[in-house]
């Protein structure tokens, strides 16, 4: 994988998740961050820091991105969400416009 095709997402605790750009762009917010004209620091460095999203949630989100790429069109599988994460995940989803 070329470096340009990857993006680094950093959680509030500083954990780094390196995922495919295609996956990250499932989020409309991240999509705009990486494609907006002019050069925001995110576009330049290929990394995004989320000071308000915890590692657990960000991990779940990354999982969702890939699940979405794979299955979103069909309804065969379910994306499992632990009940305790629900609320925070909901917040993050609204934020990321996913």
């Amino acid at each position: 994988m070329k470096k340009e095709d990857m993006v680094k997402l950093i959680s509030s605790e500083g954990f780094e998740f390196v995922i495919d750009k295609d996956a990250a762009m499932v989020s409309q917010t991240i999509y705009n961050m990486l494609t907006s004209p002019g050069s925001f620091s995110e576009t330049q460095h290929g990394e995004v820091t989320f000071p308000e999203i915890s590692t657990t949630i960000l991990e779940k989100i990354c999982k969702y991105f890939y699940w979405h790429l794979q299955f979103a069109s069909g309804k065969e599988t379910e994306f499992h969400i632990e009940p305790e994460l629900t609320l925070e995940l909901l917040m993050a989803a609204n934020y990321l416009h996913t």
Binding site: M33, F40, S41, E42, T43, F50
Partner: peptide, 8 residues
């Protein structure tokens, strides 16, 4: 002068 700005 946007290069320094953080989109996030």
């Amino acid at each position: 002068n946007a290069s320094g700005l953080s989109f996030e």
